[in-house]
Nucleic acid binder design. Structure first.
Lengths: 162, 162
DNA sequence: TACCTTTGGTTGATGCTACAAGTATTACCG
DNA sequence: CGGTAATACTTGTAGCATCAACCAAAGGTA
């Protein structure tokens, strides 16, 4: 036995399965979105977060928080989305360091066109596998884990639609 | 917005939290392993799977299965690990197409040295946040999701015991 | 035998992410 | 005020993952 059983068998079983999901899920999401919309899941998620925000716009920092991303990563992604015409950057009025990212009409249309297929994939790969109790349990457990991964709550978690 | 298959608030809450975990967990694991052992989590996991196998060796295909990886990805990673002296490649006797990856003594020592700190991180970020019931629920739910992500069980953990 | 398909694995190009600087603006503090 | 620190964001680079293309061996078929 290599990894000395500092975890109980039950803990180990839960952990290995979680690791497998963490490894496989991103690929499943990216494959569908790449094929159907030429978007990575992170790009789609970024557009989706903007689409739900007031005025379909957010400061980069706030957007980074909602997408669980670092600012450098977001900056690159927004650059790509801007180049494709889905997002517009404008300086903020109140703070001249800040930049506001806003969804363009094209970006809004892109979200509308992409969401149904994406939701289908989510259902297919995750949601439909779970009954009501599973869903509640999953929410409870992921909330607890998130509290460890992000104790300060720097990364916000939207409760609105995807 | 026509959404024939949208998600209930409870499903949505579970999903967004799962997505956040999937986004944040790899970084947490990679950061610790990179800092303490100069390994990515996937590299460590690959070494760990080898260390548990008979004779500390596995065919590339079997190793890919246990690490939830594609063969191209694994091939690149094993090349790096081989270059660093942790793994050795040898042709298989029974099938001349096949390659057997075996953990070297250095690789074994690397796993021994790295495991404790890694398990600490796993506990800190996930396991310690969960009580017994959570752990059981997590295992059950991840098994169900894996069954969707990998219906054929090509990757190791889809069903069955550890 | 010859042929076609499948399996096992590697390799190279492309693209995204993480990390480390760097710039510019604002906040803090004596 | 003046100076330092902290915040907001961008950019360049290095490294890993993905995908397509490729080769070689094995299995099937006639």
């Amino acid at each position: 036995m290599t990894e000395p059983h500092w975890l109980t068998p039950e803990q180990l079983a839960a952990w290995t399965r979680l690791v497998a999901v963490v490894e496989l899920l991103p690929g499943a999401l990216d494959t569908q979105l790449q094929r159907d919309a030429d978007l990575t899941h992170f790009e789609y998620f970024t557009l989706a977060m903007l689409s739900e925000a007031d005025n379909r716009s957010l400061r980069m920092t706030a957007l980074a928080s909602r997408t669980n991303a670092t600012l450098p990563r977001l900056s690159h992604v927004v650059s790509r989305l801007e180049r494709r015409g889905y997002v517009r950057r404008t300086p903020a009025d109140d703070d001249r360091r800040a930049i506001i990212a806003q969804l363009t009409d094209d970006g809004w249309q892109k979200v509308l066109a992409t969401a149904p297929g994406h939701v289908d994939t989510v259902r297919q790969n995750v949601i439909n596998a779970l009954d009501e109790r599973d869903t509640e349990d999953l929410r409870r457990i992921m909330a607890k884990v998130l509290d460890r991964l992000d104790p300060e709550g720097r990364f916000g978690m939207s409760t609105g639609p995807m």
